[in-house]
């Protein structure tokens, strides 16, 4: 049949474009208005002064000021170890739990709890539990490991603890969810081909878990990067845990310097994209092919 006799609608439908796509419109419009537009608006705002003069003065001021610039290092000092730790512990546990294990449902259910509690509640609990007169210090003193209470809150340790309590279960669930989808025949195939347990883990299971591990790491990093309530509540928000989100918040809501706040938000976004992007880049070099079955 000649091309010309077919209607435009037919030809579009052939490429998957038809009325069903209108269903995407509300969601796309909403995100356009509430995510893309504010972002671009913030980007525009960030390259002008509070009086409206264009220029990259905000960025220069941020990077020129030691106190401000150091928030980047402080943020990374929390986010990278927290994400690495959370995912690192998750890998062997997920490897063990990936098959049919008794009480698996109970374990995963317990893991969801801290995630639903949220950072604010965990921070409040930590203030009590890790505090100088909290149970944790009481226990250590009772066993005789220490003589005086350890300073565990209102510093780096407190924030790190809160990041692990809220972040580790999330990481484990993500890695586990992915690892459970790995076809158990693949490990069996490796065994019949002569690979021992550690070789099977290294050459088959770990590479196949890698996509789940990268996603878990990225999400753990992003969650830890924006640490705000716990950095304020169980951290030392004017000292060692003055992370970049506190700097952004103070600029916006204490000094009402919206251009500066926007500039810091843009820097945060750029840093997150840089880390997320490089993680995916490393992964794509390490791994190809699909996750589970080999059926095409």
């Amino acid at each position: 049949m000649p091309e010309r006799s077919r209607s435009l609608r037919d030809r579009l439908a052939e490429r998957g474009i038809d009325r069903v796509l209108w269903l995407l419109l509300p969601a796309a419009a909403l995100l356009g208005m509430l995510f893309v537009y504010p972002f671009l608006y913030g980007l525009g705002l960030s390259v002008q002064s509070q009086e409206g003069t264009p220029g990259i003065g905000n960025y220069l001021r941020f990077f020129g000021d030691d106190f401000q610039r150091s928030t980047i290092a402080k943020t990374f000092a929390l986010a990278i170890p927290a994400a690495a730790l959370n995912v690192g512990i998750s890998i062997p546990i997920a490897y063990k739990l990936r098959g049919p294990v008794r009480h698996k449902r109970v374990i995963t259910t317990l893991l969801v709890l801290p995630a639903t509690l949220g950072t604010v509640l965990v921070a409040e609990g930590l203030i009590r539990y890790f505090g100088p007169i909290g149970w944790f210090n009481q226990l250590l003193m009772a066993i005789g490991i220490i003589d005086a209470p350890l300073q565990l809150t209102h510093n780096y340790i407190g924030v790190m603890a809160s990041l692990i309590i809220t972040g580790f279960p999330l990481s484990l669930l993500l890695v586990l969810g992915h690892a459970s989808g790995i076809d158990p025949d693949l490990e069996r195939a490796a065994a019949t081909l002569g690979a021992g347990p550690s070789e099977r883990f290294r050459r088959v299971i770990l590479p196949l878990m890698l996509p789940g591990i990268t996603i878990a790491f990225v999400l753990a990093f992003v969650a830890a990067f924006a640490v705000f309530p716990s950095a304020v509540m169980v951290g030392n928000p004017s000292g060692e845990t003055r992370v970049i989100s506190i700097a952004a918040y103070q600029a916006a809501f204490e000094r009402f310097d919206y251009p500066m706040a926007s500039a810091i938000a843009m820097i945060m976004a750029a840093l997150q994209f840089a880390v997320v992007g490089s993680v995916f880049l490393v992964r794509s070099r390490l791994y190809r092919g699909s996750t589970s079955g080999a059926k095409g």
Partner: peptide, 22 residues
């Protein structure tokens, strides 16, 4: 990608420009 981005960014990152715009 448009639908994924808000999940790959910490809320406070887009929250500040969003609050400003609001």
């Amino acid at each position: 990608l448009l639908f994924l981005l808000p999940m790959l960014l910490a809320p406070i990152t887009y929250g500040i420009p969003l609050a400003t715009a609001l």
